[in-house]
Amino acid sequence: MSGINEGRVVIVTGAGRGIGREHALAFAASGAKVVVNDIGAGLDGSATGDSPAEQVVAEIVATGGDAVVNGDDVADWAGSENLVNSAVEHFGALDVLVSNAGFLRDKMLVSMSENDWDDVIRVHLKGHFSMLRHAGAYWRAQAKAGSTRSARIINTSSGAGLYGSVGQGNYAAAKAAIAQLTIQAASELAGYGVTVNAIAPSARTRMTTSAGEAMAAQMAPPADGSFDTMDPANVSPLVVWLGSPESANVTGRVFEVEGGKVSVTDGWQRSVLRDKGSRWDPAELGPVIAEILAEAPAPFPVYGAR
């Protein structure tokens, strides 16, 4: 993997711990200069006073890499703009944006508060959009000035967003929207030399291990020393490749990654069709809908559904 991103400038948001930390370390190992963004928040988004990003930067520097800390809030309009500007000011350019920051406020929909909904949507969805918007504006300006970059955006969706997850309606809605935002942005930014893809990772993080004893046990490293499929470091090789010049022909796609498995996930697309050629009467639609659903693929079950 060494050298695949030599000299490229990368922002990784939420890079102080977990998957984001592994992304930052892996990009540095591949030759990139890394802006390690993290606000040091707790699992629920509350301030902790910790500075995990500084520890990640220290690790990168200790191995001969180049990295800086950034503590901007990605969902704050000025903060996300400052993060992009900081990368350009410190390293002279920006080539890759990896949006990873997020947190959980899990509750059943009928028990969820307005703040539970708003805060999760803000950090996940608005945070992805804000970063994408300001990075995209930079790359558009570069392209108009005749200096089109081989730029990359890698967003972070989730299996919860692709398939649903009981007790995570706010998180699932945000992650589903991020998958669609990825497809939208891939189309709109293509003319500026930017590819946009998303990953839906499955790995051991603070989010997954906090989801109860059963989930924590399922995510635990194997006691026999065999391949740890839930190690968050397993996710980063795909992200590093997607951030490299080698991925120039891949855009608008959502990849699932877990352990040694990588797959591409198709989003909404037209499946089974019936065309009457005129307006339907409600009374005649029953058997038509039954035929359509009988021929269509069965939906993937919602995580946690009985």
Rank of each mutant, 00 (worst) to 15 (best):
V10A: 05
A220H: 10
S147W: 04
D76F: 12
D106I: 02
I183L: 13
S271N: 11
R17Y: 07
V12C: 04
S226F: 13
V98I: 14
T209V: 15
S111M: 10
P301R: 13
W139M: 09
W77H: 09
A172I: 01
E256K: 08
A32T: 00
A290K: 11
V74W: 10
G259D: 02
D281R: 07
R149Y: 07
P245A: 05
S157E: 07
M219A: 03
G127K: 01
F227I: 01
A216W: 09
S2A: 14
V250Y: 03
G225Y: 09
E59K: 11
G259T: 02
S226I: 04
N5I: 03
E54W: 08
S187K: 13
Q168H: 11
L162V: 01
M108Y: 12
V110L: 12
V257F: 00
A62M: 05
R8P: 04
Y192H: 13
N155I: 00
A174G: 08
L43P: 00
P245Q: 06
V74I: 15
E22N: 12
N115V: 14
M108G: 04
Y192F: 15
G7Q: 08
I19L: 09
G252W: 02
V120H: 11
N85H: 13
A24Y: 05
R149V: 06
F27Y: 14
E81K: 11
A290R: 13
F227W: 14
H128T: 15
A78L: 10
G71Q: 15
G169D: 09
A305T: 02
R133Y: 12
V84G: 06
P245K: 05
V69A: 12
G16L: 04
M1I: 13
D266W: 11
W280M: 00
G20L: 04
P287R: 05
G14K: 03
K276Y: 09
G65K: 04
A87W: 11
S99Q: 06
R306C: 02
V88R: 04
F91V: 01
V35D: 05
S247P: 08
A248G: 05
V56I: 14
V98P: 01
W268C: 08
